[in-house]
Design a protein around this nucleic acid. Structure first.
Lengths: 108, 108
DNA sequence: TTTATAATTCGATATTTCTAGAATTATAGT
DNA sequence: ACTATAATTCTAGAAATATCGAATTATAAA
């Protein structure tokens, strides 16, 4: 996963409501939940929920599939593993002493 | 890591500038970088940087240690592993079918 | 066609966040 | 005391986000 995509995901999951929605969908498993089902669980106005869901879709964190009048939502498979991978690769490992680099920049 | 703390970290890292600062500090390793060093790398105004650093400190993502006039910044050891752990535990595993739960709620 | 349901879009407001210059604080050197 | 440096705090405006009722769209059933 690229930096931009990771920042996008982190930012979207950083909102408490969206994190709750996402966790709920993770728990719902492969089948996911309908928009109405999510609404009943979290008890937030439909328009607000719809707004947050569109954010999650935009960030590639969830998928939506229409079946008649109802819209099923589920997590995008793999995206969480990719995000975790990004955090591990880019944000968990140090690369040693950077003070020289800093000094060079300062001098130049 | 608790939900609240995780949301805090995700939200703070979701800002591109702060993600860049954090990544830079990860790369800098144990020694970290001074505020001025970070500023030279990222070329952002001091007041803006200070604002973002205070966010990262508040979220527990980085530490600051004063040495005379200079302030050294480094990543908080372990916090990233905890965040990754949270994402793995809470956001990577499904818990099977939740449609019944939804149906019960609907009926009741 | 009329009615009901599921969900989104619109619109307006409230709130938060970002940015960055100016002023300030803290420390150190002369 | 004076000067310089490192960094923060103050302040204000701009930009982005969040909230949610009302109106609307889409689908289905009577």
């Amino acid at each position: 996963m690229e930096m931009d995509q990771a920042a996008k995901c982190l930012s979207e999951l950083g909102n408490p409501t969206r994190l709750a929605v996402f966790r709920l969908l993770v728990r719902a498993g492969d089948q996911g939940l309908t928009v109405g089902g999510i609404q009943k669980h979290l008890e937030i106005p439909a328009s607000t929920l719809s707004h947050h869901l569109s954010h999650l879709v935009w960030a590639g964190l969830i998928l939506q599939e229409r079946d008649g009048r109802t819209l099923h939502c589920r997590t995008q498979p793999g995206v969480m593993d990719e995000l975790v991978g990004f955090l591990r690769d880019e944000c968990c490992k140090g690369f040693g002493d950077m003070t020289e680099v800093s000094a060079v920049k300062t001098a130049g």
